[in-house]
Simulated assay, not measured.
Amino acid sequence: MSHLKQFSYIIKDTDFKKGPHVSVVEIQSHPFQHPKELIGFVNQNGVLKVHGIIDENQPKVINEFVLVGTGATIPDDMIERLYRIDSVLIGDGQYGYHAYILLDPRGIPEAGSDVGLIPKFKLSITYNPDADEDEKDELVELIAQFCGQHKGVVRYHPEAGGADQVEIHGYTDSFRQDQAFHNFMGQLYKSSVIDDVNLTKAV
């Protein structure tokens, strides 16, 4: 017997802002099957619902949906992760919303490769080979955490430069001006574990 089921989830009025805003709505469910193609979004008697096929044999996960009001400004680090579902009108047609699901960036399959994406900049980080291993592990964790928090615009390549070098590839040039990126660079420059930090505009 199949373990795939057509299911729906309600998005409450309190889950998103009305007007030209971007709202991220988290829905806990079993994994959606082929979310880029098979998810629907409807206004059913004034109630917004996400419809999709789920796999009940898999543990529940958090899915991120984005409701964008007409006229809203989309964050740079989100745009490459948005996959359109549908558009709806609510409030007697007063408000128009565009529904998206937030997934891995285009060209980046779930395995984590960045095939198909063209990097805008490269950050090469060279470790001091004589550095304390515990301090080095802390730095590696810092780099991985930063890239995980901004996976829509950067990718971590620990294998790129050999044992004492890693690379971070960036896919949105404007992210280099972001405060989070400046803070991260400041942490790298202060680290006694690092011998060299090299930022180039093209890869």
Rank of each mutant, 00 (worst) to 15 (best):
E64W: 08
V68L: 12
A144D: 05
E80M: 10
P31M: 08
P158G: 03
T126L: 03
L102P: 04
P105R: 11
K122G: 07
V140K: 15
H30Y: 02
V22T: 08
L123H: 00
L123N: 09
G152V: 10
L123F: 06
D132K: 10
V154I: 15
L139D: 04
L123V: 10
E159W: 08
A131S: 14
L82R: 00
G148Y: 03
F32W: 10
I27S: 02
P59D: 03
H34Y: 13
D130L: 15
V42Q: 11
R81S: 13
P158L: 02
P105K: 05
G116H: 06
I118H: 11
I79L: 11
Q58M: 14
K49I: 08
D104N: 12
E37W: 08
Y83Q: 04
N128F: 06
Y95M: 07
A99P: 04
K122S: 11
P20F: 07
L89E: 09
R106W: 12
K60N: 09
G19N: 07
L82H: 04
I53S: 01
Q149M: 15
A131Y: 11
V22H: 05
S29E: 02
G19I: 10
E135T: 08
K60E: 12
V24P: 00
P59F: 08
P109D: 13
L67S: 00
E26K: 15
Y95E: 12
F41G: 02
G96W: 02
P109R: 10
T73H: 05
V88T: 07
Q58E: 15
K18A: 04
A99K: 01
K120A: 10
I90K: 00
Q33K: 13
K17S: 14
E56W: 03
D86L: 00
I125S: 03
V115P: 04
G116I: 08
P31C: 10
L67H: 03
F121I: 07
E64T: 11
E26D: 14
R84E: 14
C147I: 04
C147V: 08
L102V: 04
V24C: 07
Y95R: 05
D15E: 13
L139K: 09
K17Q: 14
E80F: 06
N128D: 14
R155D: 01
